[in-house]
């Protein structure tokens, strides 16, 4: 085991995988322009969604996302209705704004839940090996055998459609992905000599796992998390579009796409704006995630 580590020690200069400071990290991220754009777009959306959430619940603008106005239905974008109105005369801009925190929230929550379950499973599996590993990974394989959206569909149809159930359904589908990545990283990390060294000092397994292995495998976890949020948003929108996710009249973007589906020829803006928002958010997450991967990879550091 020492032979391998010797080579890597010679090839790459000793690097601290923990990003030494945010400044250093930002400097490396800045080199990747598209990632930086993604980062700023996300930052912007983050604040907008907070505003949207407050507005939806406490009414700052005074416009409700569900206020119907049948005299002004199916109107195109105008100064009064920036994104136009839908078949019930609801303001699409307001609906997109108020739906943003739901869409982003489901994405974050599902990813967080998946990580919360998947990361410990992966570490335990990789660290202890043997039958524990076999049992956990076979269960993960079973989950992976279903296409993600199909699994989520099945879970939602059992639990019933609601924001929380959609989140859970998407999280369950993502657990194996986390478990696998973490298991792989754990397998390489536990072979390193500092793990042997700390064991030789008499540390308990729990301490070794959480204090010595986990911090060293954070970067793949972070990258995977960022990239998965995008997938989770797409899945949530997909489920809502199929009418199985977030229930109308909640202004979820997927559900809004479904609303506009029947009016595509007469009023394409009803589907266009929520659809475009989904594309922008997902794209931003993917760009940022890719940039993050490069920035956190010590081998890319030059």
């Amino acid at each position: 085991m020492a032979v391998v580590s010797k080579e890597t020690a010679l090839e790459t200069k000793p690097v601290n995988p923990r990003v030494k400071s945010m400044k250093d990290f930002y400097k490396r991220l800045k080199k990747n322009k598209s990632a930086l754009v993604g980062f700023y777009v996300l930052l912007f959306f983050f604040f907008v969604s907070i505003f949207g959430a407050i507005d939806a619940n406490y009414g700052i603008t005074g416009v409700s996302s569900n206020a119907t106005n049948l005299t002004a239905k199916l109107q195109g974008p105008s100064a009064e209705y920036w994104f136009g109105t839908d078949h019930l005369g609801r303001d699409i801009f307001i609906r997109v704004l108020h739906g943003m925190y739901i869409t982003l929230g489901v994405g974050f929550a599902a990813t967080f839940l998946a990580g919360l379950v998947g990361v410990p499973l992966g570490i335990i599996s990789g660290y202890f090996g043997g039958w524990v590993d076999t049992v956990i990974m076979r269960i993960m394989d079973i989950l992976l055998a279903f296409p993600g959206i199909l699994l989520a569909l099945a879970i939602v149809s059992v639990l019933g459609g609601s924001t929380i159930n959609v989140t859970i359904a998407i999280a369950i589908g993502a657990v194996p992905q986390f478990a696998r990545i973490v298991r792989g990283s754990t397998l390489t990390t536990k072979k390193l000599e500092y793990v042997d060294a700390i064991r030789a000092l008499g540390a308990k397994n729990g301490k070794i796992i959480f204090q010595h292995i986990l911090p060293n495998i954070m970067s793949p976890i972070i990258v995977n998390t960022t990239l998965f949020i995008a997938t989770a948003i797409l899945s949530a929108a997909g489920l809502s579009f199929l009418g199985l996710g977030v229930q109308p009249p909640t202004p979820e973007w997927g559900a809004m796409l479904n609303d506009g589906r029947n009016y595509m020829y007469q009023a394409s803006h009803i589907t266009f704006f929520p659809g475009m928002m989904i594309v922008i958010v997902v794209l931003a997450f993917n760009l940022f995630g890719d940039g993050l991967r490069d920035a956190l990879d010590p081998k890319m550091k030059k």
Binding site: A2, S5, K6, V15, R18, Y194, A197
Partner: peptide, 13 residues
């Protein structure tokens, strides 16, 4: 115990 590879025997974080 002291291990043979000082480069990797300390936790980098």
């Amino acid at each position: 115990m002291i291990f043979q590879e000082p480069m990797t025997s300390l936790n980098p974080v």
